[in-house]
Design a protein around this nucleic acid. Structure first.
Lengths: 345, 345
DNA sequence: CTGAAAGCGCTTACAG
DNA sequence: CTGAAAGCGCTTACAG
């Protein structure tokens, strides 16, 4: 039987191991850490007992002494979201490689109560530092600033201008916008609309700016990165008789939602309307027609964020740590093309 | 400036608050916990200082005394996977509602080193209990059994027969298979193939058994729940001239991969081949044709797992805790239909 | 090569 | 209404 019948099994303590081995806790401690020579015979005996008992030192007590938990945190708006899942994956990989544990926490789109809880994990020294990923916007960051004063914090995905001394990791969003814009412009389009992500995010602002290098007057509507918002925003455009032959999605999901809505309106993609996404999610190459998009390496954002954080942690400072901007890549597939003649137009 | 310039800021201690307030730590402690009356004047003064200093009690020290961290863990094979992301989301919601913190950890498909790390988080009392989600199979579970002996563990998504005393939460997988099987059988199909998930998982076994109630001789191939494996397995079937008019996917992704491969072979869905998935992911209703599938409430699996765990934790035992089996639902869309006449057949 | 003891930052009987 | 002190389970100077 399991926990059912032995609910209050106390874990073994180092003292108990010491008693069983007939030595002091000092010697047990040093046997485990290897920080001081121990008689091989004694060491062997102790190790055997540790194995036999299944003894594991208490993490809290250990931390109380060393001041380090070798755990870092990752705060994301919603862990069930594909995008943040990829970031988490990358951060975990890197943390693992550097022998740190990673604790992932959802802020449920920046719910202040939740955020506070995670910030407190740093404050209470449960974790040594935090990778923070913004949800809707990066303005009301007073709490984060406070935490960053005394503890290492790295921003993943979104930089904050005001907090320029906090290292951050992001993709070349502006360049991504430019690539998409140039591509669509070359195809001969002149009337484009942008259905972007949250307006408060730097990434959104930058992507829009990049696109507008080629479509200076492009209408910008903001959604929430979900498929439904792409669908709805295109619906609004159509309902208002806005003329356009190209749509830039804030991400792939919004682009896919847009395609769905366009089709329902009897418009063909790409013959009548060109659609371009951002991210290059797995499904982008599977849908028909396959989605033209700007690929960013989201896992790498996670990896680099964790790396910067842990490096700063070990160095004791972010002095000399520089932020990371990751390259993006245009992936031309089938949702973009030159305008085809349409009898109805 | 931030962490850059003040790397070694020590956090405030309760003693410092006590000194500043001219009281003992005892009084500060009781002011915070409310476990003993404190002079209102004094209490106010202390609270002000706590606010002013931004004091937060050390989590490790606290735990050392109380024996409780009010943190639970969730071990999943891969957090970047949609499915486990949903489970994590649900578990986090519930933990939050019950005032617990949730720590999510990827085992990277049951990498023993990683698993050990997370099991140790329970052993070292960093977390009070663990929700465990299996990756490929549920057989080599010796480590998990050991942990479950002394600490509360709940299995999400997969039960283990041998470990029947560990509570688990899962969907009605057998019933889901039956629903899908009955539906396709009613459409008049007689030759079906099953491209299932990992063979070592109970969920896979049960779904297959359900389908086979209606297609007793259906061929079963096993994949890994990824789109590519659905694509590849259908490729194998076609290359071997296996005759079938219906495909059951181990999940939606495999079904979508299957559809892609069928199309490339010139087969129409559903006119030539009916395809049914499992899960009902968001994209299922967006692809063309929209996917017929069995919907399961994955977030609910996460919610219930966390609930069972925390209830057991507070009760000090799983005595009387019963496992949870969540209902599923057939969602008929456009990838399933009666066989259409085909000149080539 | 080894141990007694101080101390990390809290909580909580015990005493007043 | 309040405080001195023991103790949670470790690590690490200090002493031998």
């Amino acid at each position: 039987m399991f926990f059912v019948t032995e609910p209050n099994t106390k874990p073994w303590t180092m003292q108990q191991i010491a008693d069983a081995a007939g030595v002091s806790v000092t010697t047990v401690s040093h046997t485990m850490s290897g920080k001081r020579p121990v008689n091989p015979q004694t060491a062997l005996r102790i190790k055997r007992l540790i194995d036999e008992f299944g003894y594991v030192p208490d993490a809290g007590a250990r931390r109380l002494q060393s001041g380090r938990s070798r755990m870092i945190g990752l705060a994301v708006p919603d862990i069930s979201n594909w995008y943040f899942g990829r970031i988490a994956r990358g951060a975990e990989e890197m943390a693992d490689e550097l022998d740190y544990g990673l604790i992932v926490c959802s802020t449920f789109n920046s719910d202040p109560r939740r955020e506070k809880r995670y910030f407190n994990m740093v404050r209470t020294r449960m974790i040594d530092g935090l990778v923070y990923t913004a949800g809707r916007e990066m303005n009301e960051m007073n709490e984060l600033e406070k935490v960053a004063l005394s503890s290492p914090v790295v921003l993943a995905d979104e930089g904050i201008n005001r907090l320029s001394s906090i290292p951050w990791v992001t993709s070349e969003n502006f360049e991504g916008g430019r690539l998409a814009g140039a591509h669509v412009r070359e195809l001969g389009h002149t009337k484009a609309v942008i259905i972007g992500g949250f307006a408060g995010l730097n990434s959104t602002v930058e992507r829009v700016a990049g696109i507008r290098e080629f479509f200076p007057n492009a209408l910008v509507l903001n959604g929430d990165f979900e498929m439904q918002s792409g669908y709805d925003l295109v619906g609004d455009l159509l309902a208002n008789d806005v003329r356009f032959t190209a749509v830039f999605g804030g991400n792939d999901l919004m682009a896919i939602g847009a395609i769905k809505r366009l089709r329902e309106a009897g418009l063909r993609v790409p013959e009548d309307v060109t659609v371009v996404g951002f991210d290059d999610v797995e499904i982008a190459s599977v849908i028909t027609p396959a989605l033209t998009t700007v690929r960013q390496d989201v896992v790498s954002i996670g990896r680099n964020s964790a790396r910067l954080l842990i490096e700063g942690l070990e160095a004791g400072t972010f002095e000399g740590t520089s932020s990371v901007i990751l390259p993006v890549q245009l992936v031309v597939r089938a949702t973009s093309g030159p305008l085809a003649p349409d009898p109805r137009r």
